[in-house]
Design a binder for these strands. Structure first.
Lengths: 348, 348
DNA sequence: TCTCGAATTTGGAACGTTCCAATTCATAGA
DNA sequence: TCTATGAATTGGAACGTTCCAAATTCGAGA
């Protein structure tokens, strides 16, 4: 009687088994699974009952073979341990989910080889669309191959020189410029930039905004105050030492992102210094932890969730046939907290 | 001459096309793709060249149809926005990656319906194994169905009553007990517990450890000092008010996890209070942000990456045929920082 | 040159679905 | 009762791979 919960790895239950069990043809079962209005309600119920009873699982591989229309979208993230990207991913997921797509996330940990494997695996699995935050060193060609397969692709956070891809990015240049202007207004003359590599476009933009502000204020650009490094805690931690142990120590720094700033916070602490009093520190991203650091971090606010949602909407638009690339740049905002030494927490 | 970079969505390139192009049979192409030692080097090269030239992508769906052996493993996470789970995921990924598996992550945001969809999608795609941090309210049966399919499953962080699944968890009970003992030793008598729901096993364990310590010290258990709620910032923020606005306010709290503690930190701040001076606060997990909060958070240290790695190794073991379930409980450690009011940062 | 075994290669039958054209079934109107 | 029409259902041919048994090629010894 109770055939359910068939245990063990017995041979896979197929549509044909269902058909036999329900006394219909495999075609009918297929129609039921596609919620076709063609089947009579009564028949549908019989079939559904059999499916339930035999514990059938749909084989999407086989289905895609005949008619490729997948409902999974890929999200390839370069650093999931960075809360910023986690927040970004959550924004994307929300949109995909309500649109009926299942997002699968893969983490590349900033490793192009791993990224290549992940992309390969995703394309082998016939994804409907892709959002990617490219790992450092990604070349347009690495992604091109997927695009050639006519998979809709949107770049998030990092654009790629060359071919026109759709992308969403915060206004890195403007954000960095504003942050730097703020530090200058507070009287700082030797301001450092921590983190990122000059071969990353995002770093170029942020560091570019930084330099633009210095130039506009008539301050010199001192190359050894620009400390390159991976965008992680470690980097910020080390950078502090570099700019403090020189003849003319820096008095402030703009960080490539909040995570670097967190590292810098540790670096200062380790030397017995306090951000905001002994050194002005500004981050970028405004991840949710930023307001809880010690001291709270002044940073460039990015509307992360909205950015993720925008990227997801772009992919959906492309999936639905509108393939024009769109480069979206979202506005940003400086949030002044204690780490830069400006008292008060007003938001400008 | 240059057939590469074939643009446009033209019909899919298949093994048969490669075979024709290279002047061999499809079987040979198949052998090449499986890196079989049977094919002559020379032939292999011809085939590889054709693959390269025509821009072929392997169709894993079709392959799985004939012989199911997938190289993707699923990781189903209940809250990716919680840095703890992000760190956990990173640990798992590392192991899978070096073992040649591609991990795909899905986020359920603690929503059982979404979890069901994700699990369904993953099983439809023929995963080789699965690690899941079950969403609140998950019933063994929800996962059972997958297990019936003989997919190796490991539960992470949250066990499930009933059937014997493999699992990895930190020693929640002991950790919570130690943390509570520490607060008691500092002289606190009215200690609250923030966050989690009593229908979550992890909460039972942590809250159980908390209560055990109270009882051992001869302190009463006051039900309205146990504030249930989702394990997020919001919850911690609100909980502070609840335990402070009563006739006999609590003077300390153990939080279900660090994220709840971060919220509690905000809650205190909002009332002009400082953790460590006006109220003792302890978290659980020791996410990497915990040392940077204001003040730094005393918390129960969990070796997150190791836990993730352990889970991944268990899945691999099961994939390789050893299906005995194993329940692994990892040791934990109290890390004393400033938020609990014990001066100094010694680690006990 | 012939023979034999080992080394390579190959055609065709699966695998579990979807799609199409065609069939069967019911119902209403004549 | 018969027919026409629309509603439901159905068989078989794909889809792109792997596996198997069988076929072919190669090289060395007789």
């Amino acid at each position: 009687m109770n055939t359910r919960e068939t245990p063990g790895p017995g041979p896979r239950v197929t549509m044909i088994d269902i058909a036999r069990h329900a006394g219909v043809s495999k075609s009918t079962v297929s129609l039921v699974l596609q919620a076709s209005p063609l089947v009579k309600a009564e028949t549908r119920e019989k079939v559904v009952a059999s499916i339930e009873q035999l514990g059938y699982v749909y084989n999407r591989g086989a289905a895609n073979l005949r008619s490729a229309r997948s409902n999974i979208v890929g999200m390839v993230i370069n650093d999931l341990a960075n809360p910023f990207f986690a927040e970004l991913a959550v924004g994307m997921e929300h949109v995909f989910h309500t649109a009926g797509y299942i997002p699968f996330i893969a983490n590349t940990t900033e490793n192009p080889k791993r990224q290549a494997e992940v992309l390969r695996s995703m394309s082998e699995h016939d994804i409907a669309g892709l959002i990617i935050c490219p790992a450092r060193g990604t070349k347009p060609a690495d992604i091109e191959s997927l695009a050639g397969l006519s998979v809709p692709i949107v770049l998030a956070m990092r654009r790629l020189a060359g071919r026109k891809f759709s992308s969403v990015t915060p206004d890195n240049l403007r954000g960095a410029r504003r942050a730097t202007e703020h530090l200058i207004a507070l009287g700082h003359k030797r301001i450092a930039f921590f983190g990122g590599y000059s071969d990353m476009i995002a770093q170029n933009d942020r560091c570019g905004g930084f330099q633009a502000a210095l130039i506009a204020a008539g301050l010199p650009i001192e190359p050894d105050l620009i400390i390159e490094g991976p965008p992680n805690r470690e980097c910020g931690l080390n950078a502090v030492g570099r700019v403090l142990d020189r003849a003319e120590p820096a008095t402030a720094a703009l960080c490539f992102n909040d995570v670097v700033a967190f590292g810098a916070l540790s670096g200062l602490e380790r030397r017995g210094l306090t951000a905001g009093r002994d050194f002005a520190l500004v981050g970028f991203d405004d991840v949710s932890e930023a307001r809880h650091t010690n001291p709270p971090l002044t940073t460039v606010h990015v509307d992360t969730a909205a950015l993720g949602e925008r990227a997801a909407h772009q992919v959906l638009r492309m999936i639905h046939g509108d393939t024009r690339p769109e480069e979206f740049v979202s506005d940003v905002d400086l949030v002044v907290r204690a780490s830069c030494g400006a008292e008060g927490g007003r938001r400008q």
